Computed example of a mutant assay.
Amino acid sequence: MSIDTVLVTHDKLDVLMPLVVEQQQDFGKKVDLAMTRAFFEGIVDRGPTFQIVAMEEGVAVGLVMVDPIPNFQFADNVAYVHDVYVTETHRGARGIGAYLMAAAFVEAMRRGYEFAEGETHPDNSPARKLYDRMAQKLGIGIKVIDSVRYLIDLRPGIDRARNEPEYLDRLASPRLFGRQTARTGADA
């Protein structure tokens, strides 16, 4: 059975949705299918953002998303390759994740991106070796940049704001982050 990669368009959303739902469930997210579909309807075929799926016999078995991120160092947008996901039954030796990432880098080059960014945990040596191997096979450069990327979970604040309507206004106050507030204790 062969795996093909396909650029996601609006006519592929029905194929994509079961994969996205699986991914969200794997990460413990309660899935709202209507909201998820509306999200993808809003980003598919829109400007520099793109998504690629790995297909096997008409079924999506993997996904990668690419968004532009502003980079002041290069004074341009950089293609940020993220959310590489392969269904559990297709993970492992088949190399679908690598195939998706390569397809994302190739499409980014087609779209004129001069740089792409991907990331992994510094201790993830298999992923780091994969990046190095892919760069060599694709004939592109790679530079390791030590950084930490944060995913901030805003849900506790949203939940609190539902019960305390003034909560977000208090958080938006410049005083919250002033030195005086830091010494005397901020509303946490």
Rank of each mutant, 00 (worst) to 15 (best):
L16D: 02
D67N: 13
E114T: 14
D132G: 10
M65K: 10
F177W: 10
R94L: 05
N77K: 13
G112Q: 06
D153W: 04
R160L: 13
D159M: 13
D123W: 09
R170I: 03
M134H: 08
A34C: 00
D76R: 14
D169N: 11
M134E: 01
A135F: 00
L176C: 00
K129Y: 07
Q51N: 14
A161F: 01
Y80V: 01
Q136S: 14
N124P: 07
A103P: 12
F40G: 11
F115R: 15
L151N: 06
A54R: 13
V66G: 03
L16R: 09
V66N: 06
E119Q: 15
V6A: 12
S173P: 08
L7H: 13
T120W: 00
K12S: 10
A186R: 09
A104C: 05
R37K: 11
A186L: 01
P122C: 01
G95Y: 01
G58P: 01
P48W: 00
L100E: 07
M65Q: 13
T49G: 04
L151C: 01
T120R: 00
A104I: 08
T49F: 02
T36P: 02
L16S: 05
M35S: 14
G97K: 00
R179T: 06
Y99Q: 14
L13T: 07
Q73V: 11
V61K: 08
L176A: 06
D83P: 15
A79C: 13
Y80Q: 06
M35V: 12
E166W: 02
R160F: 12
R128A: 02
R91A: 08
T89L: 05
A103W: 03
A103L: 06
I142E: 04
D67A: 11
D123S: 09
Q23E: 09
M134A: 01
G58R: 09
K129A: 13
F115D: 02
G97N: 09
K30C: 01
M1C: 04
R170C: 10
V66A: 13
L19Y: 05
Q25C: 02
D26T: 05
F74R: 13
A93S: 13
A127P: 04
P70H: 04
A135G: 14
R175F: 05
M134Y: 06
T184R: 03
D132Q: 15
V144D: 12
L176G: 00
M101A: 04
L33Y: 04
L176S: 00
Q73F: 12
L176R: 15
G139Q: 01
D11R: 06
A172M: 08
I43S: 08
E164I: 04
G92P: 02
V15H: 01
E114H: 14
E57L: 03
R46Q: 15
A135E: 00
K12N: 05
I145Y: 06
R170A: 10
V61I: 15
K129I: 06
E166P: 00
V21A: 09
P70F: 07
A116N: 05
R110L: 02
D26Y: 05
V66Y: 07
